[in-house]
């Protein structure tokens, strides 16, 4: 292994690293994703478990916040009922940009086993979703993996949020329609 002498004195006493603004900003964003504690149903228990002792979310820089104003990620953990849908959208609107959404569990993805009058058939009807997480309920490992995938996604994005194309609220037929964000 080649060894190089680094002359700190000539570099104003500081080690120098060169990077682009995008990478620097995304490095910061992706490594301190603060999710909103948005436990809705059963998946919330697994979300708590992933924050607790064995799975320990804190080591990934993920600290749950109770206020949407301080959160970057909304983890929709559980069944979203029609009565609650309005509040979910309101909390999403209250979050500051940049923001991402993880839909955790079958119920949040598609309505899951609750194919009834009272459940929203997939949260992507009201909120644009970045990561869909399958399972009923997904294990904490799955949530950790989803968060790592989201970090990966963020690292590829542009620091200027306007340039990123968020997944649109598309219709069932898949045709792209107006952006609702």
């Amino acid at each position: 292994m080649a060894q190089h002498q680094v002359n700190y004195a000539s570099a104003a006493g500081l080690p120098i690293a060169l990077t682009s603004v995008d990478k620097l900003v995304n490095w910061g964003r992706s490594n301190s994703l603060w999710p909103l504690t948005y436990g809705l149903a059963c998946c919330a228990i697994e979300m708590m478990a992933s924050g607790a002792s064995r799975y320990d979310f804190d080591r990934m820089g993920t600290i749950f916040r109770a206020s949407p104003r301080q959160a970057d990620v909304m983890i929709l953990a559980g069944t979203l009922s029609k009565k609650h849908a309005e509040f979910a959208r309101r909390l999403y609107d209250q979050m500051t940009e940049p923001k991402w959404v993880i839909s955790m569990g079958s119920c949040a993805n598609t309505g899951g086993m609750f194919n009834t009058y009272a459940t929203v058939q997939g949260v992507d009807r009201i909120i644009p979703v970045d990561i869909y997480l399958p399972g009923c309920a997904p294990r904490p490992e799955t949530l950790q993996y989803a968060l790592m995938m989201l970090q990966k996604k963020i690292r590829k994005e542009s620091a200027d949020m306007k340039k990123n194309t968020k997944q649109d609220l598309t219709t069932q037929t898949g045709k792209k329609r107006a952006r609702l964000i």
């Binding site: 559980g78 069944t79 009922s81 509040f87 009834t116 009272a118």
Partner: peptide, 23 residues
């Protein structure tokens, strides 16, 4: 209350007895 109402009792009327157990 009612923010997690999913209609489980309604589902029970539309499922056979063994089908309903996982619900």
């Amino acid at each position: 209350i009612g923010y997690l109402h999913r209609g489980i009792e309604k589902m029970a009327e539309n499922m056979t007895y063994n089908e309903f157990l996982p619900t």
